[in-house]
Amino acid sequence: MPRLNNPRVTLAIIAVALVLPLVIQNFLTFQLTLVLVYAIAIIGLNLLTGFNGQFSLGHSAFYAIGAYVAAMLMDKADFPYAMTLPVAGIACFVFGFLFGLPALRLEGVYLALATFALAVATPQILKLSPLEHWTGGVQGIVVNKPEAPFGLPLTEDQWLYYFTLLITIVMTVLAHNLVASRTGRAMMAIRDNPIAARSMGINIALYKSLTFGVSALYTGVAGALGAIVVQFVAPDSFTFFLSISLLVGLVVGGVGWIPGAFFGGAFVLFVPNLAESFSKGLSGAVYGVMIIVLIYVLPTGAAGLTRAASRWWRAKA
């Protein structure tokens, strides 16, 4: 797998990311911010699916919990927006860990069904009338867009972009280090051969539940950021199809390769719009064909492409 171990490439990418919002329009900046948000969520899914081999169709639920925790804290408790992220992350970690415990007994499609149930149940629970006081029911919650602090000469969109970028870099580095650590190797050992992993003394139940928790934490932070960026949460933004989008992003970016999440995030945000510009009526068909063609041409996603490119580069040099 290609890794973020070439500091020059990494620094160049970060430099471009820093300059970009100064030269592009506000709406595009907003979209790029959302790409980063999706990327964080996809990293979370990748930790679970790509590195630990557990299948989830339920990550829209964690995203929703993160988003609602952030929105409710800002709306009801006047929390500063940056402070909502750790709270949302911890809430999702606990929830994910607890959900991971019964899910331990389930494998493959059965785990998929359990997580799927979670994804389908979440919007319904959020709409529930007894909870309407906190969740705003079907209408959802509107939150204010934060302004740039310290009198920085940035628009709100630009500031949010930089804020999200900072969080994204931190989360990416953490995920990268986690995967490279002893814990990460244990996660992968469980994915590759659970029985061998157990005989090496790895506590499978603990690591699987922890991975579920960490994965939910990432997705929850993404959800909280998403709520701040979009300024709005409503139950119907977090349906099963969000889970599907994240899965598509994961496959497109490359399963088991962390930087792939950025390709995946860009894919799920931009490609449906692109498909719509080809043909209004057939946008879904164009999107579907694009996914299938991509799987044919690049079965390992952006990861395989990057690997091939870097091999070509080295051969040339």
Partner: peptide, 15 residues
Amino acid sequence: PVLSHVAVFIGLLAI
């Protein structure tokens, strides 16, 4: 792998 199949099925669904 399984996930590629899932992605293809989602593509089919959309189409």
